[in-house]
């Protein structure tokens, strides 16, 4: 179902409405959430020993949590998305303060939070793949990230990338995935050759 179609079928639960809005217009929906909620988070972080930069980091981490959960349909909202964001941000900031208490010189930018779905410090193979994602052409990168991360429907991706049909967008997606796999495999083979030489 497309985001537009989803928004036509009432009534949607708040999390489903948020998901539909994010799929339909990510930039506008995130900007609205940002504008409405960031000031409250910034006030809280500043009142509890943080800086404006700390507030920005914490709030963006919380928004990423909200975004990924909403798109994966694992989000349960009992109040507004803003309330969820403030609660997660406060929790993240409390943990960060505890962490800094243990490691007073550590910076927030090095922090990893349990709330983030995957701990990047344990994701070395995925980090290696990340380099090759960045080396893909713009069209392939956008198609793959759009489908696998932003979970955009293939209809939407086909229209955005001017593919004639969902079928040709699907074929193109797998061609791009194959290209990524070949790049990673070639790099892996080079590393193995170096280690065994």
């Amino acid at each position: 179902m497309t985001a537009a179609a989803a928004s036509d079928t009432a009534p949607l639960l708040p999390a489903a409405r948020l998901r539909a809005a994010l799929l339909a217009d990510r930039a506008a929906t995130l900007t609205q959430l940002y504008r409405r909620t960031f000031p409250a988070v910034e006030r809280h972080v500043r009142r509890h020993g943080g800086t404006a930069a700390d507030a920005q980091d914490v709030f963006q981490d919380a928004l990423i949590v909200l975004y990924e959960k909403a798109l994966a349909e694992t989000l349960t909202l009992t109040a507004t998305p803003g309330t969820f964001l403030v609660a997660v941000s406060r929790n993240l900031w409390r943990r960060e303060l505890q962490r800094r208490g243990q490691h007073p010189t550590a910076e927030l930018t090095e922090a990893h939070f349990d709330e983030l779905p995957a701990d990047e410090s344990e994701a070395a193979p995925a980090l290696a793949v990340l380099d090759y994602v960045q080396q893909l052409g713009e069209k392939c990168r956008s198609l793959l990230i759009g489908f696998y991360y932003h979970r955009q429907p293939l209809e939407q991706l086909a229209a955005a990338h001017q593919y004639g049909s969902v079928r040709s967008a699907t074929v193109q997606k797998f061609k791009c995935l194959e290209r990524l796999r070949s790049a990673v495999r070639a790099a892996w083979a080079r590393t193995t050759d170096l280690l065994t030489a």
Binding site: I145, Y149, V184
Partner: peptide, 26 residues
């Protein structure tokens, strides 16, 4: 592993978008 890498790339892109929104607003 490809999917895990794409998740990281997507999250990186989202963070850049959020930083842009922040600059636009504040």
């Amino acid at each position: 592993q490809l999917y895990a890498g794409l998740q990281l790339a997507g999250r990186q892109q989202l963070r850049q978008e959020l930083q842009l929104i922040h600059r636009q607003l504040y």
